[in-house]
Simulated assay, not measured.
Amino acid sequence: MSKLEQLLSQYAAYHLDHKNILTHFVGIPLIVFSIMCLTARAGFHFSGFEITLALVLIIVSCVYYLKLDLWFGCIMLLLFSAVYPLALKIAGFGLAAWLMLSIGIFVVGWVFQFVGHFYEKKKPAFLDDLVGLIIGPLFVLAEAIFMMGFRQELQQRILEQARKQRAAMDTKPVQI
């Protein structure tokens, strides 16, 4: 099993309910975008270029995604590149407007996440493993690709492993 399959199946084990997956199509992009907005304000100029914390996070994330899977990494890079200018625009707003909009988007994104996990009856994956925070966006992309009918063999391997992991989780006693 590849590292990509391992990470996506581990994440998918917390996300087997279709309603939960659908809420993640809204929640995760909102959360990622809000983080871009919040971090796009911090930066410096270097040789005529503005280097923001958001740009650094995009580059680091995409290098990680590219290492996991070339196609998913390239698509993620395109998606991040498409929304980064909007994040920069929002970061250019006055302090109050920037914070209210960025934090508002963040909160709405998390509301969608928790509604989805209500349907799933499972806590979010990152509560057990912080890697889930960076895998979440990749999971949403992979699910979109799968829904379009691409990479079906990968989807089947991930689902098979996720169901096994979920069954193991469900047999463990609840810890309080």
Rank of each mutant, 00 (worst) to 15 (best):
E5Q: 09
Q10A: 15
Q113M: 06
M1P: 01
F93N: 05
M76V: 09
E5N: 11
D129Y: 11
V140N: 08
V32T: 12
L138Q: 10
K123W: 06
L7N: 12
I21C: 03
F146K: 07
Y119Q: 04
G48R: 13
Q6I: 08
G109E: 10
L88M: 13
K121R: 07
A87N: 12
M147A: 10
I134F: 15
S61I: 03
L66S: 00
L86P: 02
V56P: 11
A13P: 15
I145Y: 13
L79N: 10
E50R: 12
M76K: 01
L88I: 08
Y11C: 06
D170L: 11
N20V: 09
I35Q: 00
L53A: 10
K172M: 01
G109N: 09
P173M: 04
Q175S: 13
S2Y: 04
R157N: 10
D129A: 09
Q113N: 06
I135F: 12
L66W: 03
Q155V: 08
I51K: 06
I51H: 09
L66C: 00
A125E: 06
Q175R: 11
V111W: 10
M1A: 07
I51G: 08
G109V: 09
S47K: 08
D69A: 00
P173K: 07
A87C: 12
I158R: 05
Q152Y: 04
H117N: 06
F49W: 06
L138M: 13
V60H: 14
G43Y: 00
E160Q: 14
I35A: 00
A162L: 02
I105F: 04
K123T: 00
L79R: 10
V108G: 00
P173S: 05
I59V: 11
H18L: 10
K122I: 02
A87L: 07
F106L: 12
Q6D: 13
F46W: 14
G136P: 13
D17F: 03
I35E: 01
M1L: 06
Q152P: 10
I90T: 02
A13F: 15
